[in-house]
């Protein structure tokens, strides 16, 4: 390689994705935004922007519920907690929500488990077609990575979203896809063999795998997953006095470090 790549791209944006012809029109992935996409629901446009594909009404209902079902206006939950801190310290609405979204790309919940999780189900489905049982595949995964995202949950032993999502998926006709069947079969297996309960991430991953999302597309789709839970947290924390969101006394930090010493 050399500077040739930079020379080729200098001063020019070449794109198939879209452009605003300001004062005239806007093209969004090959469609006129204001003419051809004006009836799109926001989540429909978002999913189209990510995948380039159009989804059926029931698919959009499912995608929408994936967002709705995990939008908790609970300030104890870490991204919301940060949003509330932003309000308590009288930062702006956009900063509060954007940092909340960014923080959701975490390792023990959110971004990483979801992206790794959808890839797991896609690999599991592939293995199953090769004649490998789900329990064998899961055992190898556990041996190698110690964890299967979507099974086990920090802070709680069960997941209140699961029956709602399972039932809604069934109602909409999405309960027989190959990935969701694997997710549910594995849930039974891991509960019996390891005492691990499924959490909703497994369902989200499996259902979106059945809808044809790639891990990269799913990563983008789930980035604002908990966004709708944040505004109530921001609003209420801002209604309260500044600096009043869970203030911490000095003695509520347990110090475990080096004893006092002098800087000579």
């Amino acid at each position: 390689m050399s500077q040739q790549i930079k020379l080729n791209h200098e001063d020019t944006i070449i794109t198939r994705m879209g452009k605003g012809f300001l004062g005239e029109r806007v093209v969004y992935r090959g469609k006129d935004l204001h003419h051809q996409l004006k009836n799109s629901q926001w989540i429909e446009l978002f999913a189209f922007g990510i995948t380039g594909r159009e989804f059926t009404e029931n698919e959009l209902k499912l995608l929408n519920f994936i967002w709705v079902s995990t939008s908790y206006p609970d300030k104890a939950i870490w991204p919301n907690h940060i949003t509330a801190l932003a309000a308590s310290s009288r930062s702006t609405a956009s900063l509060a929500l954007s940092i909340g979204i960014t923080v959701f790309e975490a390792s023990i919940y959110g971004g990483k488990p979801l992206k790794v999780g959808i890839d797991f189900f896609q690999r599991a489905a592939h293995a199953q077609k090769q004649g490998i049982s789900i329990s064998d595949f899961a055992a190898k995964e556990l041996l190698k990575h110690k964890v299967i995202y979507g099974y086990g949950r920090p802070l709680a032993s069960s997941d209140e979203r699961i029956p709602h999502v399972v039932n809604f998926a069934h109602e909409l006709g999405f309960s027989s896809g190959e990935h969701i069947k694997i997710a549910l079969e594995l849930a039974q297996h891991l509960k019996k063999s390891k005492g691990l309960s499924m959490n909703v991430a497994a369902l989200y991953c499996a259902l979106c795998a059945d809808l044809g999302f790639t891990p990269e597309e799913f990563h983008l789709f789930t980035t604002p997953l908990v966004l709708a839970g944040m505004p109530p947290c921001y609003i209420e924390a801002k209604e309260n006095p500044e600096g009043s969101f869970l203030p911490i006394r000095c003695d509520r930090v347990t110090y475990t470090g080096t004893a006092k010493r002098e800087w000579c």
């Binding site: 001063d11 944006i13 070449i14």
Partner: peptide, 16 residues
């Protein structure tokens, strides 16, 4: 860079 953006998938103008 609006003027320097080349769109390769364009349905063309549908009018305002």
């Amino acid at each position: 860079f609006g003027q320097n953006t080349i769109l390769t998938d364009d349905p063309g103008s549908l009018g305002l």
